[in-house]
Design a protein around this nucleic acid. Structure first.
Lengths: 118, 118
DNA sequence: TACGAATCTTCGAAGTTTCTAAGATTCAGA
DNA sequence: TCTGAATCTTAGAAACTTCGAAGATTCGTA
């Protein structure tokens, strides 16, 4: 029996989810985590961010439930929580690529017109 | 022979793409377009937005290449450009749902602790 | 307990996005 | 050409996000 409280509608949750993905540093962080867990230090070095910024962006990803963390001594290791998140990034790339190819084709047509259409 | 100019890196394009999806009104617009093209007027009525807001959000989707439009008389009809965009929304929903179920389970555990762990 | 390393938090300034309201444009029909 | 309907654009204020610097926390070891 689900406890229905005044919940935000699904489209708002989706928008929050996408907004979290909508920052270059966070996209890069997730991509660094493709091959498995990484420490904050390693991520920081790989992306050339400062310590504060790295933590802030990781916190945003954590708050949205995209990554989980585990502490070991003084290091904290992050991993992508659901592998489908990486699928999502792939799908986005495919869509983006198709879009860019369309533009490329359009540019080609424009160039042809220089030499007279028909 | 690809013309390499100073292009923005792929992760920045991806972030822009996700940022465009990161607004509730735009998620809803795309969902309204699931079943095929719709006029601006129909979308506006369905989502209960004002005319300015509808145009602004549609313009954002158009600029990112997520939708295309076609004019017929005084009406303009929009459609989703690449069906994979709808797949992407579905995938996001699945990831989100899984995350919420995890939280639900966690809440359950917390409730159990009331009656004594171990 | 004192220290150093790693990570996280906070704060205000700067930058970006969204909202609201008003007006501009485009088209079809009289 | 005038009118009305549909859509688009603009501009400024409000709301939100990010950046950068500084300091706080946590942990392991001496």
């Amino acid at each position: 029996m689900p406890y229905r409280t005044g919940q935000p509608p699904v489209y708002a949750l989706k928008a929050d989810f996408f907004r979290t993905l909508g920052h270059p540093a966070r996209v890069r962080l997730l991509q660094c985590l493709r091959e498995g867990e990484q420490s904050v230090g390693a991520l920081q070095a790989a992306l050339d961010l400062d310590s504060g910024g790295t933590s802030q962006h990781l916190a945003a990803l954590r708050k949205q439930g995209l990554v989980t963390s585990r502490r070991e001594g003084t290091s904290v290791y992050y991993r992508v929580k659901d592998p489908r998140i990486l699928e999502l990034l792939e799908l986005a790339k495919a869509i983006l690529t198709a879009g860019l190819e369309d533009n490329q084709a359009l540019l080609g047509e424009l160039a042809d017109e220089e030499f007279g259409p028909r």
